[in-house]
């Protein structure tokens, strides 16, 4: 096997793992390999996948975004309040909500790029601040009474009567991210800054702008995930999204993106998110307790990283 073939095989490792796990589940549970169940899995995955797409850019930069869950919660209660008690048009409210998420992400980016605060610390702080704000804003109670057909469609609707809207949204965003990373100047600059910030700056790249944009995108993606979650629950919870950052990071790492930055791809993240989703769906179908599911999930993440390491030596 030539080094190139080996590298390709390694790159496709997560995808092969997904196929093996899916194959195994198909044999063990007759319910798994049905169109209905697969679309259902993808719908469940979509929330994590959207956050993980943004997280991929952040991790490619060599950063981390712990605040995604809190951004999701605050933008959700904000959007829901706009619709339910302020009578704002649902389409406009959704857009405003996503913009609010983007603004929160931009704040992260500014703190990290201009304030030169380590991403872990900066987003740990904003995670706490934004969670506090969403609890205060709602006085700890869920926001209900949304009553909008458009808004329910975003999480619960179907395209062509078959494919859930969130799945279409996820695949659309996947295509956008793939294009941005592969074909645009911005995408190349994300890789460059993540690979060597100093060399990038000395080559004339606007390093700060790249960072601020990336965290802004991560915030917007979290808000989008919030829209889907709120729509499906038909209410916005101020405590929503807690722990989502870890699932998103797990998807990115499972997909083979390096935590030190500069290397990775968005296809891996999609596969990583699907792998996590397929595992928990399959284990559900097999009647494994949710406690054991956590153990399995952790072991899979560990295995993925170990395999990745082994190949690099």
């Amino acid at each position: 096997m030539s080094p190139q073939q080996k590298a390709l095989l390694q790159k496709l490792g997560p995808f092969i793992a997904l196929l093996i796990v899916s194959g195994g589940l198909a044999v063990m549970s007759p319910d798994f390999l049905t169109v209905g169940n697969l679309l259902n899995v993808m719908r469940q995955v979509s929330i994590n996948a959207l956050i993980a797409f943004g997280m991929t850019l952040v991790i490619l930069l060599g950063g981390i975004d712990l605040s995604v869950g809190s951004i999701l919660a605050l933008s959700s209660v904000f959007t829901a309040t706009l619709i339910s008690s302020m009578g704002v048009d649902p389409v406009a409210a959704t857009c405003i909500g996503v913009a609010a998420g983007a603004a929160m992400g931009a704040a992260n980016g500014l703190i990290i790029a201009k304030g030169k605060v380590a991403p872990f610390i900066a987003t740990l702080a904003t995670m706490t601040i934004l969670r506090g704000l969403s609890l205060q804003f709602t006085e700890g109670r869920p926001v209900t009474g949304i009553n909008s057909d458009f808004f329910s469609m975003l999480g619960g609707g179907y395209v062509a009567g078959l494919v859930p809207v969130p799945v279409v949204g996820m695949l659309l965003m996947f295509a956008v991210f793939w294009f941005v990373l592969k074909k645009t100047v911005f995408g190349r600059h994300v890789y460059a800054v993540g690979g060597n910030e100093e060399a990038s700056r000395l080559s004339g790249l606007s390093v700060d702008a790249v960072k601020i944009w990336v965290y802004t995108i991560s915030g917007a993606m979290s808000a989008m995930a919030g829209v889907i979650l709120t729509s499906r629950l038909n209410s916005a919870q101020p405590t929503a999204g807690a722990g989502y950052e870890l699932d998103a990071i797990a998807a990115v790492v499972l997909g083979g993106t390096s935590l030190t930055g500069g290397r990775g791809w968005i296809f891996g993240t999609l596969v990583g998110a699907l792998l996590i989703g397929v595992l928990s769906n399959g284990l559900n179908l097999l009647g494994v307790s949710s406690f054991y599911q956590l153990v399995v999930k952790g072991v899979v993440i560990l295995l993925a990283v170990l395999v990745d390491r082994g190949g690099k030596k």
């Binding site: 890789y191 460059a192 993540g194 060597n196 100093e198 060399a199 990038s200 000395l202 004339g204 500069g262």
Partner: peptide
């Protein structure tokens, strides 16, 4: 540390500027 992005290809480094 200052000239090249080692994780990138020859092509990507040449056109970085």
């Amino acid at each position: 540390s200052q000239g090249l992005v080692l994780s990138m290809s020859v092509r990507e480094n040449i056109t970085l500027t």
